[in-house]
């Protein structure tokens, strides 16, 4: 296998992405105020649920599993598309498929998240998101979360005890 010798030219897509970043960052910062209060999240959720009752009648049938979906030149999506806060645990449990239930992981290739200091989690994820830290797919995943999201997830994982004996003993979590 050869190392690619052609550099990626700056493309229109790149500029669009950059613009989306600015938007995301701005909205993320604005949304950070008070986002940690779960009641507020749930209240917003209630509003959203009511608002969704109507379009639900539309069928979502026939959606392809998505070949080339997203490869078309549509505007890049970002968390700004739906700034409604998601409870920390709902976000955190999406990490578990690789990083273990509740972030608890034994001797695997992925980083255990349980017990990680909040600032370490947040800084690492922001570095992934901004492309400052080399990654395989974490850069893509991190782009789905605002600073406030990352803070909330960081607090969730910091509160979970890391594994010491390499065997998970998952306890009930809120």
């Amino acid at each position: 296998m050869r190392t690619p010798s052609v550099a990626i030219p700056p493309s229109a897509a790149g500029y669009r992405r950059a613009l989306a970043w600015v938007l995301t960052a701005a909205l993320g910062a604005a949304g950070a105020v008070g986002l940690t209060v779960q009641e507020r999240a749930l209240a917003q959720a209630r509003v959203q649920a009511t608002a969704q009752a109507t379009p639900q009648a539309q069928t979502n049938a026939g959606t392809p599993a998505g070949p080339a979906a997203g490869s078309a030149g549509t505007a890049p999506p970002s968390p700004a598309l739906n700034p409604n806060p998601v409870p920390a645990s709902v976000m955190a449990h999406t990490c578990a498929a690789c990083h273990g239930t509740n972030g608890q992981l034994g001797d695997e290739a992925f980083k255990p998240l349980a017990g990680m200091p909040v600032q370490q989690f947040v800084r690492t994820m922001i570095d992934f998101r901004e492309g400052r830290r080399p990654a395989t797919l974490m850069g893509h995943v991190a782009k789905g979360f605002t600073d406030a999201d990352l803070q909330a997830m960081g607090e969730f994982f910091a509160a979970v005890a890391p594994l010491v004996d390499g065997t998970a003993t998952h306890k009930a979590t809120p």
Partner: peptide, 27 residues
């Protein structure tokens, strides 16, 4: 790699334009 939320009543990707291993990924 995708992250999804509800956008305009449907489940949509929210994690930026790129979702694949970059073509210029290193060995």
């Amino acid at each position: 790699a995708d992250v999804f939320k509800i956008v305009d009543g449907k489940i949509a990707r929210i994690n930026g334009a790129s979702r694949y291993l970059p073509l210029d990924a290193s060995p």
